[in-house]
Design a protein around this nucleic acid. Structure first.
Lengths: 124, 124
DNA sequence: CTCGGCACTTTCCGTCACGGAAGTACCTTA
DNA sequence: TAAGGTACTTCCGTGACGGAAAGTGCCGAG
C-alpha cells in the first residue's frame, strides 16, 4: 500500500479498464447498488436471509436473491443450507469476499463521513 | 487502518446505511458505472473532455456529460473552462475527490487482480 | 386438518437509465 | 465559402432494473 499509491494506469495500460472485459463485469457486480450493501452487511459475520433483509434497508426479496446468487457465483459469498426445519440458511463471506471487504470498507467509511457535507442531510 | 478494521456498524448503527439518506445518494454517485471510471481516470491528472472519452472506454458523450455534472455538483471534480478558441476545458479532482480516489484505487486494483479468476477472461 | 412461518421463486409491469444520432455555438483552417 | 474541430445539449427509443405481490415446498403448532 506504500509504493503503489500513484498510478493505477501502470496496471491497466489501455484506458482505465478495457471495455467489455472481465474487470468491468466484476466491477459492476461489486459496485452495484445492492451488492455493496450486502457485502458490507456480511462483514459483521454470517447472517440469515431475514437478517440481511433488515440490514440492507430497502432491498426487495427479488433483488436480495439476485444479488446473493451473483455474489455466490463470483465466489465472494458462501451459502450454507442446514437441513433443518424450519429452513435455515446462513450466508457468509468467503476468503475472497473478506479480501474485497477490506478494500471496500474504507470507501464506505469515507462515504459515511462525507455524505452530509456533499449531498446535504436531507436534500434530494 | 489498524484499529478500525473491524466493524463498520459502530459507525452506522441502523442497518448498513439507512435507506433514503445522504450516504445512499453519494454512494450511488461514486459507485455508478461511469462515476468510478471517470474518477479513476482523473487520478492521472487533469484531463480534457476528449481525453476522458478515450480513458473511460465505451462511455457515450451524454453519459460523460451527465457523470461530470454530478461529480462536479458533489464537489469531487473541478471544471476549468479556458476562454480560448477552440474551446478547452480541463477536468481535475478536487481535494475531496483526491481523498475519494485514495480509497477507491485499492478497490479497483483488487478488481483488476481478481477479475480473471472470478469471472473468467472471456466469459459472459 | 388448516394455519402460518421461513426461505425463497416467479410473474407482471412501470420507469428510467442509457445508447445513438443529430443539433448547436463558436472559431480556425483551407 | 465550406469543411472541420471542441465541447457540449437535446431528442427519441428500447431494454434492463427493480418493486409489488402472489406462488411454492416443507413442516410444526394448534
Amino acid at each position: 500500500m506504500t509504493e503503489s499509491a500513484e498510478s493505477i494506469f501502470e496496471q491497466f495500460p489501455g484506458g482505465v479498464f478495457p471495455a467489455a472485459c472481465s474487470s468491468r463485469v466484476l466491477l459492476d457486480h461489486v459496485t452495484s447498488k445492492w451488492g455493496v450493501l450486502v457485502l458490507v452487511s456480511l462483514t459483521d459475520g454470517p447472517q440469515r436471509w431475514s437478517e440481511l433483509r433488515r440490514r440492507a434497508q430497502g432491498i426487495s426479496e427479488k433483488m436480495l436473491a439476485q444479488t446473493l446468487r451473483t455474489l455466490e457465483a463470483d465466489g465472494l459469498v458462501h451459502r450454507e443450507q442446514q437441513p433443518v426445519m424450519p429452513p435455515r440458511v446462513d450466508y457468509s463471506l468467503t476468503p475472497l469476499g473478506e479480501e474485497l471487504a477490506e478494500v471496500m470498507v474504507p470507501l464506505l467509511r469515507w462515504v459515511g463521513r462525507n455524505a452530509d457535507t456533499v449531498i446535504g442531510p436531507a436534500t434530494r
